[in-house]
């Protein structure tokens, strides 16, 4: 028994160095990392670290929650780059890289903070009734809207409330509404997944993936209104919404 604490003492600094940012929590490190980021990284990743899709530079504010990266993973990516991609290796000092990691941890989307208590079981029932036709949680549900399994880790409480009460305020790429009339006269409503000058790729409201050549369409419209219904308080009370978020947050 006497050996065990000794081993832990010996091994823990090494263990920590491989997983935890040694500068974590130091606001000066995050500040300095921010300056370094803007000078060295922002041309590709954007000043807000949200990425530039046209050059495949990913949104770095979402990487922690979406990809479950450790600080060491991010450190290694900055150090070594990504082979075969535009992301080069960097010869910053270790401290500079940890400063960058601090900055990225700082700008990471924190998700829902201060969620009021609610009844998660009731939230689950409400989710099944109102949301699951289009949204998926832990593998259950539809595909017309975004998967909500980790949404409370990626979006703030305020922005989630807005998205439910006013779904057209911000429509994510991949979910922009679209209505086409085909050559045979069929009206197809759905969301745009991709398009080029000659074709479009959409999911129709029956959640069927469909591809069309634009020249074969009679019409193509891009409504500003999201396919998601507006959930006003009369349709979904504030406490009911909190219950749903408690259900989602439990995931």
């Amino acid at each position: 028994m006497a050996l065990l604490p000794m081993l832990l003492l010996v091994s823990s600094p090494a263990l920590l160095a491989q997983t935890v940012n040694p500068l974590e929590g130091d606001p000066r490190a995050a500040f300095a990392g921010g300056a370094l980021f803007r000078a060295q990284c922002a041309t590709c990743h954007g000043a807000d670290a949200k990425g530039i899709s046209s050059i495949d530079a990913p949104d770095l504010t979402l990487m922690w929650s979406q990809r479950q990266l450790s600080a060491q993973d991010v450190f290694d990516t900055i150090r070594n780059g990504i082979a075969g991609s535009i992301m080069p290796p960097h010869d910053f000092t270790d401290t500079e890289i940890w400063m960058l990691v601090s900055h990225l941890q700082n700008v990471a989307v924190a998700g829902v903070i201060g969620l009021p208590d609610g009844d998660a079981a009731n939230g689950q029932r409400l989710f099944a009734r109102h949301c699951a036709e289009c949204h998926r949680v832990r593998g259950e549900g539809g595909s017309l809207g975004p998967d909500l399994s980790t949404i409370t880790a990626r979006r703030s409480l305020e922005s989630l409330l807005i998205s439910v009460r006013d779904p057209s305020a911000l429509i994510a790429p991949g979910y922009k509404p679209l209505t086409v009339i085909t050559g045979s006269g069929e009206t197809v409503q759905g969301v745009l997944k991709s398009e080029d000058a000659f074709s479009l790729q959409m999911m129709d409201s029956n959640q069927r993936l469909r591809g069309f050549r634009k020249q074969q369409l009679r019409s193509l419209e891009r409504p500003q209104q999201s396919l998601m219904p507006v959930f006003s308080e009369s349709l979904l009370g504030q406490q009911e919404l909190i219950d749903i978020l408690n259900f989602l947050d439990r995931n």
């Binding site: 300056a35 803007r38 000078a39 041309t43 954007g46 000043a47 530039i52």
Partner: peptide
């Protein structure tokens, strides 16, 4: 464009600031 005083380090890119691109308007 958001200019910033650059670090002027040889061997490191030296943009002197950052850019915010509105992807919706491309």
């Amino acid at each position: 464009f958001i200019p910033e005083v650059p670090a002027n380090t040889p061997g490191q890119s030296n943009f002197g600031g950052t850019v915010h691109i509105d992807a919706e308007q491309g």
